[in-house]
Design a protein around this nucleic acid. Structure first.
Lengths: 236, 236
DNA sequence: TCACCCCCATTGTGATCACAAATTTGGCGC
DNA sequence: GCGCCAAATTTGTGATCACAATGGGGGTGA
């Protein structure tokens, strides 16, 4: 999956498909997806430094495609470059948290609403299956699996909206709170609150747009509540 | 130290408004700002091809910093890379237009509302001065000046919100409809509709948040109406 | 006249090197 | 020991080159 030799060159399949690194994908695209996935699943700690040569050695490629991927993630605000040109995973602040919460509530219910009329029963089943797997990840104590499942739950729905531009905005927002979800993971199992994912699935089956938007909003507020309490302290 | 030369470089060519290249800035940062400014002011036509070496020759630098700047603009959706790896200024579509309108109405009034309590009288005067210059640009038949002024009017206000993350989302949205504003420019002078910029300035002076949000919303709807009619046709 | 195909210029990708700024480290003087 | 300065390392930036894929242009054949 990693070519570190200058000689072996091949990219026979021009068709990009799948996350499989180096199968019709450019190197920087493959690197980008790996880093992005890692950020979304809590694989980086907030404040952690990211260096081009460090990632390059780790993934076994030259620094150049890393440079492309990191620059893209910086533009998406998934990473941050300080004035000293050091790259790091951005820390959370209270005001940034407030903005993320607002943006999510402003955009995600709309995406869900747009998606509803395009949701096939098959797609709903897929989302339901993802949610089942999500529950298993919680039981198994698998934070990364939980985060990936939660992401898939929301974005499998949102992608049906056929609103690529709004989807990109929301993806950027998720990248910005990804590293903090992990820190809130511990509270998930103990909660006896409503599972708004199931409420949302019911609303999908009922084709009830109002209820779906409500469930997504509630899920956002509950989830961000976990993160806000855990990361920023319940008061302060 | 800019570039030591393996070949003679010529004078920095057409930079319409003063973004001086190289004032403690990296080359790619300078290139990024020039390209960004050009996109926001209608300096590129939708569908126009953008090549690394083409821009590099035009700006008199090597392709490398161009590559960085273009990749950043692609991530911000100001430019688009097709599957064939060709880079171009994205064309508008009806569904993209709808998403842009929604995102603007969802985010910009909030930024204006957040900014209001931080607006000093001096800042209001500055915004008023920008609006005056905007009127002069219309009278003088200066599309670029109008677009730059319009951008400054909105973002001078929004920047006061101290909500950097929301500001970045909105900036990305503006970059996506920038190339189309120019095509709608011709209709501006002839209109006898309400000038919502002036309504907004009055609301700022009155410290009336509701009125300000309303004025921004109205301005968005009116302005995007121009663009939508012009670019997409009044029907279809 | 038109369709097809081959050749070549163009384009983005990735590797490697040189360089300057920032950081870290080591050691010297007090 | 402690603080401070200089050497060494690390890091992003920019240039240059090689390469493969794409696209355009021109020529050939029916």
């Amino acid at each position: 999956m990693k070519q570190q030799e200058p000689s072996p060159r091949k990219a026979p399949s021009p068709v990009p498909s799948g996350i499989a690194p180096g199968l019709g994908l450019t190197t920087h695209e493959s690197v980008y997806r790996q880093l992005r996935d890692r950020i979304l699943c809590g694989g980086f700690a907030p404040g952690e430094a990211v260096t081009l040569r460090g990632i390059a050695d780790e993934l076994g490629v030259s620094p150049m495609p890393i440079r492309d991927a990191v620059r893209r993630l910086i533009a998406e605000r998934a990473l941050e470059m300080r004035d000293n040109r050091r790259v790091l995973v951005p820390p959370m602040t209270r005001t940034k948290f407030t903005q993320i919460l607002f943006a999510r509530k402003a955009l995600e219910p709309e995406l869900a609403g747009l998606a509803l009329s395009r949701l096939t029963p098959k797609a709903i089943s897929k989302i339901e299956a993802i949610d089942d797997g999500l529950g298993r990840s919680v039981s198994a104590g698998d934070p990364q699996g939980y985060m990936r499942g939660n992401y898939q739950f929301h974005f499998t729905l949102y992608e049906r909206a056929a609103a690529e531009m709004l989807l990109a905005l929301v993806a950027s927002v998720w990248l910005q709170f990804g590293p903090f979800m992990r820190m809130a993971y511990g509270r998930l199992g103990t909660s006896d609150l409503t599972d708004f994912h199931e409420v949302a699935i019911s609303a999908m089956k009922d084709r009830n747009e109002t209820a779906l938007r409500r469930a997504i909003t509630d899920d956002i507020e509950q989830g961000m509540g976990y993160i806000g309490d855990t990361v920023l302290g319940r008061r302060q």
